[in-house]
Computed example of a mutant assay.
Amino acid sequence: MKTTSDLSTQIPEPAFTRFLFADTRMNVVWTLLRIWLGYEWLHAGWGKITNPAGVWVGEKAGVAVSGFLKGALAKTQGDHPDVQGWYASFITNFALPNAELLSYMVAFGEVFVGIALILGLFTGIAAFFGATMNTNFLFAGTVSSNPLLLVTAIAIMLAWRVAGQWGLDRFLLPYLGVPGAPGKLFKHEPRSPQSPIPPTA
Rank of each mutant, 00 (worst) to 15 (best):
M1L: 08
T3S: 14
T3G: 14
T3A: 08
T4E: 11
S5Q: 14
D6S: 14
L7W: 07
L7I: 10
S8N: 10
I11E: 10
P12T: 15
P12G: 13
P12V: 15
P12R: 14
E13F: 00
E13W: 00
P14K: 12
P14A: 13
A15R: 03
F16I: 13
T17S: 14
R18L: 07
R18D: 14
R18I: 03
L20P: 00
F21M: 08
R25L: 15
V28S: 13
V28K: 09
V29D: 05
W30Q: 05
W30N: 04
L33T: 13
R34C: 00
I35E: 04
I35N: 04
W36V: 11
G38D: 10
Y39W: 15
Y39P: 01
E40V: 06
L42S: 02
L42Q: 02
W46F: 07
G47S: 05
K48G: 11
N51L: 04
P52L: 03
G54L: 04
W56I: 04
V57S: 00
V57G: 00
G58N: 09
K60D: 13
A64V: 00
V65N: 02
V65S: 01
G67D: 06
F68R: 06
L69G: 12
G71I: 07
A72R: 09
A72F: 10
A74Y: 03
A74F: 05
K75M: 14
K75P: 06
T76P: 02
T76E: 11
D79M: 11
D79G: 12
P81S: 13
V83A: 04
G85A: 13
G85K: 08
I91D: 10
N93D: 15
L96C: 06
P97E: 01
N98P: 07
N98G: 09
E100M: 12
L102W: 09
A107N: 01
F108H: 05
F108Q: 01
E110N: 08
G114P: 00
A116Y: 02
I118R: 03
L121Y: 13
G124A: 02
I125W: 12
I125M: 13
A127W: 00
F129W: 15
A131P: 06
A131V: 08
A131Y: 05
T132G: 07
M133N: 10
N134I: 02
F137M: 15
F137E: 11
L138P: 15
L138N: 09
A140L: 10
S144G: 06
S144I: 14
N146K: 07
L149K: 11
A153V: 04
I154M: 15
I154E: 10
A155H: 05
M157C: 15
L158R: 10
A159V: 09
A159H: 08
R161I: 09
A163S: 15
A163V: 03
G164Y: 08
G164Q: 07
G164F: 08
G164I: 06
Q165K: 06
W166L: 09
W166E: 05
G167P: 03
G167W: 01
D169K: 12
L173P: 00
G177I: 07
G177Y: 06
V178I: 15
V178Y: 02
V178D: 00
P179D: 02
P179N: 01
G180M: 02
A181T: 09
G183I: 06
G183M: 06
G183T: 07
K184A: 11
F186S: 10
E189Y: 05
P190I: 02
P190Q: 09
R191C: 02
R191H: 04
S192R: 12
P193Q: 09
Q194P: 01
P196S: 13
T200A: 14
T200N: 10
A201G: 06
